[in-house]
Design a protein around this nucleic acid. Sequence first.
DNA 1: AATGAATGAGTGTTCATTCAT
DNA 2: TATGAATGAACACTCATTCAT
Lengths: 197, 197, 197, 197
Amino acid sequence: MTSSSSAAGGRVLRADARRNRDHILEVAQRFFTEHGVDGSLDAVAKQAGVGPGTLYRHFPTREALLAALLEAREEVLGQRLETIRSESADAAEALRGWLEALVDWAGAFDGLPEPLRAAMTAERSPLALTCEGYISTTDAFLSAAQREGSARGDVRGRDLFLAVLATSWARGAALADEQSPVAMVDLLATGWATPPS
Amino acid sequence: MTSSSSAAGGRVLRADARRNRDHILEVAQRFFTEHGVDGSLDAVAKQAGVGPGTLYRHFPTREALLAALLEAREEVLGQRLETIRSESADAAEALRGWLEALVDWAGAFDGLPEPLRAAMTAERSPLALTCEGYISTTDAFLSAAQREGSARGDVRGRDLFLAVLATSWARGAALADEQSPVAMVDLLATGWATPPS
Amino acid sequence: MTSSSSAAGGRVLRADARRNRDHILEVAQRFFTEHGVDGSLDAVAKQAGVGPGTLYRHFPTREALLAALLEAREEVLGQRLETIRSESADAAEALRGWLEALVDWAGAFDGLPEPLRAAMTAERSPLALTCEGYISTTDAFLSAAQREGSARGDVRGRDLFLAVLATSWARGAALADEQSPVAMVDLLATGWATPPS
Amino acid sequence: MTSSSSAAGGRVLRADARRNRDHILEVAQRFFTEHGVDGSLDAVAKQAGVGPGTLYRHFPTREALLAALLEAREEVLGQRLETIRSESADAAEALRGWLEALVDWAGAFDGLPEPLRAAMTAERSPLALTCEGYISTTDAFLSAAQREGSARGDVRGRDLFLAVLATSWARGAALADEQSPVAMVDLLATGWATPPS
DNA sequence: AATGAATGAGTGTTCATTCAT
DNA sequence: TATGAATGAACACTCATTCAT
């Protein structure tokens, strides 16, 4: 983590505040993993051993907390991004790899896709920025594939990102379910229809 | 409506009870359309002019109420099914049409896809039956397409049904958004990748 | 009390509900007497041994609770009204007596004048009706005094009612203070100025 | 402002501290004017660009802040006092003018009369001194009028001061209301009753 | 069969005050 | 001296569910 000295806004935090903030994030990470993103914020505060006011000071909304949590995961996704870039044989494979990475990312917590989708249309959410960033990346990968001729021209990065969220959303159930022979990410790539030979 | 004399269980209701039940359904239909499926059940009861106990007696859970509501919509979907069966040129077109119909169906209320997905794994839900029925129908269409050679063999009806729910889930946002040139149902059919020529 | 079978709205309450409602009123009466009208409603509920939802059901706002409490005191004020009507030598004495009664009434709880004053301008408050009623009564007494020639013609009942509230508001301090030789109600009647002989 | 080098206690402040203090006062003046005296002190601190601790150091209680604010207004009231003294035809007119000035003064902020009244009985409040000072002045004007024979002898300056606060308190509502033909300050002077001719 | 009163844990949010930095 | 992070009790209000009537 590089958050050792800076919050999202870039302002330097006092040592004790940073410690608290980091601790809250750790607890929230665990809590949301176990209880999903709709869990009680008061419960998070209690588990972190701080008052609700402290939680509120650091993260004024549930979205802000989620955004900070995802920011912490950014690094993981970034590394995966590097791997994809360096090891993919072609743009199509890269795009597919990236979409898979995104699906994992959006599936980090139960119920996470919901606020992410909401952030795609609501300008105000702190999650919006995060989404926009990844949509851009998706667009980059998609454009490369389109130039390569391996992706349809009428699809937009935004569409694929939304499809990714939908896939993550669906996976919550699919995982509980027995594994399907064909994953939805695959379906998304080639569709259910066989190409007209 | 053919529910004129029977509840799901098939038990005959007293005339006044049936009237009550039907009225609740009408109100709930309107209410969920306006406020989404997460709206307050107390509000539904109040609008219907009955006590919450009465609502509870008829529909012990939110899922039960939704199931009854969807049962009422079954007829509409059934008619569309007939049209598809009679007017589709081939099995692939039929399958596609059916999936579109399902997407509309699952998008009847805001937030409906969520409990439907839950019902796919939870055995207990009264919605499970409904889902299973439509999964079977999807399987039938899919099998025909597979026999015809126009659908991949490794896809299951269950997968497509889940994909349909995900599509409905995503559409909520997509509609608010500017319309994408490529709809997700299409994406689902042929994928984003161009077939290797 | 005639509240034995009816709420403010006139609807008959179920026996248990009425018992609860009456008990809440008793507790609230005591609580507001001790802690003033700004005390916590949750605390009232707790003392009454009911959940906050129950309190809320009966009295959706603090004003509603206050109004019900004052309604219960209406009878007391009504009796005083009778006495004033029957025993006053003239209209001026009656008016003065009525104003004194009102001052006592508005001083029933610490902080009560504040919401009453607010109710004088806000149409929506359940207290507004109560105020309007007593303003009318004040107007009646005042008109009589004016016809009698013992009250200035340019004063309105509304003005006197407001002055009464202000007096009650001031009394909170005056009582704690040593008693003043001249009470504010008197001051209100004749002013601090000596008449130009 | 003559507070250029001293706090109430008379202690000399460091230049930066004084600047801070003065700035807080400016901001608080604006803030209380807009939001009333019950507004959040944290908000005041934030608007002033200082931490809540700093605000607290300068003004340990809300009353202390109010007292300092009123001290700053003292000058204005003092000038009005001069005018009254020099231009009033008689003691009665002077007293009346002074009371009017006081009503304006106590109405500077929404909700100000409340803490002022509290200060009249609570010895500890920093507002108490301010009040006592103005009560003395009122007593002086009143005594003059009493000597002149134009004021009742059984009224005390303290009573009039309290009546002034009550008038300010009432005025908040009266202004929102349509203007009454008879102002409460007048009522206070001559009462509602017509003098027995 | 129907009613609707009661429940009570739970929600997000606020803020005067303290105190470590 | 100043800062601002932390506190944590308190607030009004909601609602699925139960159960006495």
